[in-house]
Amino acid sequence: MSARTGAEPIRVFQVATGNVGSEMIKRIGEHPDLELIGLHCYSPEKIGRDAGEIAGIGGIGVLATGTVEEIIAARPDVLTFHGVFPDEALYERVLEAGIDIVTTADWITGHHRDRNHPHPSGRPVSEVLRAACLRGGSTFYGTGMNPGLCQILGVVHSADVSEIENVTVIESVDVSCHHSVQTWQEVGYGKPVDDPGIPASLERYTRVFSDSVYMMADCFDLELDEVRFSYELGACTEDIDLGWYRLPKGSLGANYIKYQGMVNGIARVESHLEWQMTPFTAPAWDIKGCYITQITGDPNIYSKHMIFPKAGARLDNPEDFASIGMTVTGLPALNAIRSVVAAAPGILTSADLPLRGFGGRFTLS
């Protein structure tokens, strides 16, 4: 937590310039609350280059560095972390130096990191980071579009429901615009659908969605017995060449995953992932291109959160189209920064943030 007035720009040091990170360099420059003062890169060839040039928007006068010492010496108010996987050693040092962290990398509550990624010390990761927060008087928060905003919408849509029986949020999307070969190789897309390793790959890559179920249950004051994982696989019915990725006939091209929060054997809170890389699969799902909240109760609720490009945007360039997905992943983190900086030290979840922590910003002429 940093002591500052609401009128001052918040000094941001960003980590990573992958798909999300590159988009966030641009978005920080447009954000009225924020000022980018530094960039940390892991790739040696990026160190010393201008952050704007790395992101493809031209020079902005911020040069990439490569050590934690340089982050701490810059004395930012907050570090934004947009790597694919967490760097918990970096987190600990930054937090104990009194610098808040907002991340889109595989963290919503810390439950799955504690369970599936043992810390070298043998302690739960969340315990290590919480102790670093207390030593430095700093705050740590993880979010994104899904998991993240998708589950927040699920909670908010229950505000006018009595006698809730079930809350389910669904991501129903075509994922072919997310051009990350490494990601989809890890998930198992392109491997024969009967490859016995695919279920474990899917579960390993999506484990953070169990966190999203626990976060929603926390908001509902609901104690879960367990969170169950299940899946269905869609096999490509023909050879698919996306230009940046190839999916042979018979390989994994779509999936339907469920993370279900169980109480007395009944699913009460659920996160579903309805993904396709191509519509030519068997089985195939009716991809709706949106985020859906379904609530069974009194009354029942069905809501779609649909995302469209701004007026005049060109969509003939796949990279421009893909940037929409990167924007909605990173903006929930950027817009929450002022609330995170104002919060008490410790680990926050979206259940802890005030409503203003989810608010965007107007552009006024």
Score class of each variant (00 low, 15 high):
102 V>F: 11
229 F>S: 01
92 E>M: 05
78 V>R: 10
312 G>W: 11
18 G>V: 01
230 S>F: 04
322 A>H: 01
134 L>I: 08
79 L>R: 04
222 L>N: 00
216 M>A: 12
293 T>I: 08
156 V>E: 15
110 G>K: 02
193 V>W: 09
128 V>M: 04
194 D>S: 12
127 E>W: 01
214 Y>N: 07
188 G>Q: 04
217 A>L: 06
124 P>K: 15
107 W>I: 02
188 G>H: 03
172 S>M: 02
234 G>K: 03
62 V>L: 00
347 I>G: 05
301 I>E: 09
351 A>V: 10
67 T>K: 04
27 R>H: 13
153 L>W: 10
27 R>T: 04
30 E>S: 15
112 H>K: 05
330 G>D: 10
233 L>M: 14
168 T>L: 14
341 V>W: 06
215 M>V: 10
175 V>C: 11
20 V>A: 03
227 V>R: 03
237 T>K: 07
339 S>D: 14
256 Y>P: 04
204 R>C: 02
363 T>Y: 08
252 L>F: 10
91 Y>T: 01
169 V>L: 05
54 I>R: 04
217 A>T: 07
239 D>S: 05
92 E>C: 08
323 S>H: 11
198 I>M: 03
318 P>E: 09
204 R>F: 02
251 S>R: 06
181 V>M: 09
158 S>D: 13
